[in-house]
């Protein structure tokens, strides 16, 4: 039997395969993993989802976003708030996590839509700078937001705590202190499922009619417009999807720690995720996954270097960038994959 699959489909299935294989391998080896690696499994999943979602904006849509951590922040805060508020309503942790993820994704999607209205009318550098500003705005808002819950429902206030909660009420978001006392309900399995869902959404979007329109806009904005594509509409579609996925990643990430602060999701985090995308290759989802996982684990592996840790990290990063862009090595790799293809054909 011969399965005729085109190149993209084959590549997509290879990506699913790698993720599933990694998950199965890690599950099998669970007993022998170090606590250090075990503790990083969930954050790795969250960063992988972040990298894939940013790759949708940067690689597929072709717009540079420097505020992606902002969406992660929206997802983290809203998702965790929902999970805490529903603590007594939904006792089953996995279900509560799923609801939290959905709420986080929804709010981040809404934020993406609102931000997209002015932002997506811009191009190139302007868009990068405006997204950067939005990331900072989101950070400032959460640094000044107070949300509490009591028997009368949710109470909100800005700048200082004026929620005046009734007896038995609980302050969830405490301004600069962020959220504390989070129940850690994120699991590696949940993270794996989220990565798979993200991949399915992104691959299906890219392979659809809308996806081809998005890439046409990336390749030539004017040509795409001249054949009647609604540019803002398609840009918005990619941008909101990307934001919503980042929101889900944020919820997953936040639910893995007992405390979360708005300052965590700053410009540095946005750049970190952008580094994953650039290193893995723009438009290359498998590359993003590998880069996100490797660069999350790397600083921990370098702990033996003590004080020189961050210096070594930077040098390794430069080396990796140099080698992956080295023409000789690239042609060697491509020769390798060509041979494989010939073997498959034979």
């Amino acid at each position: 039997m011969k399965l005729k699959l085109n190149k993209t489909t084959r590549k997509n299935f290879a990506t699913y395969g790698v993720v599933i294989l990694a998950y199965v391998l890690l599950q099998v080896m669970k007993g022998s993993l170090s606590s250090s690696l075990k503790g990083m499994l969930v954050p790795i999943c969250a960063y992988v989802v972040m990298a894939i979602s940013l790759n949708l904006t940067v690689g597929i849509l072709g717009e540079l976003s420097l505020g992606h951590a902002g969406f992660m922040s929206v997802g983290a805060f809203t998702g965790v708030t929902a999970a805490i508020a529903l603590q007594n309503v939904i006792p089953a942790a996995p279900l509560r996590l799923a609801v939290g993820l959905a709420v986080g994704a929804a709010f981040a999607g809404i934020a993406g839509f609102l931000i997209g209205i002015p932002v997506l009318r811009l191009n190139g550098d302007y868009l990068a700078i405006v997204t950067l500003a939005f990331g900072e705005i989101i950070k400032s808002i959460f640094n000044n937001l107070y949300v509490g819950i009591d028997k009368n429902g949710m109470q909100f206030s800005l700048l200082s705590d004026k929620t005046n909660l009734a007896e038995g009420g609980k302050l969830i978001i405490e301004g600069p202190m962020g959220i504390g006392g989070i129940q850690k309900i994120s699991t590696f399995t949940a993270g794996f499922i989220l990565v798979m869902i993200t991949l399915i959404i992104v691959f299906n979007l890219v392979n659809s009619r809308a996806g081809r329109a998005i890439m046409a806009i990336r390749d030539n904005h004017i040509a795409a417009e001249s054949i009647g594509l609604h540019v803002t509409h398609y840009k918005m579609m990619a941008f909101v999807t990307s934001a919503a996925l980042a929101g889900a990643a944020g919820t997953l990430f936040a639910m893995n720690y007992s405390t979360i602060m708005a300052n965590k999701f700053d410009f540095n985090t946005s750049i970190l995720v952008l580094v994953f995308v650039v290193l893995g290759g723009q438009g290359n989802m498998l590359g993003s996954i590998v880069a996100a996982a490797a660069l999350t684990v790397l600083p921990e592996m370098l702990r033996t270097f003590a004080d020189y840790r961050m210096l070594v990290y930077a040098i390794v990063l430069i080396l990796v960038m140099l080698t992956t862009n080295n023409a000789t090595l690239r042609s060697w790799f491509s020769r390798f994959s060509l041979k494989n293809r010939e073997k498959e054909a034979a």
């Binding site: 033996t304 270097f305 003590a306 004080d307 020189y308 210096l311 070594v312 040098i315 390794v316 430069i318 080396l319 140099l322 080698t323 080295n326 023409a327 000789t328």
Partner: peptide
């Protein structure tokens, strides 16, 4: 191309020497 490899080699050496420093410190 030779130059690039020289660069890479240099960087490698730097990392290794730093590794040595880190080890001693520890």
């Amino acid at each position: 191309m030779k130059k690039k490899f020289a660069c890479l080699a240099m960087a490698m050496i730097m990392v290794l020497s730093l590794a040595a420093c880190g080890g001693k410190e520890e």
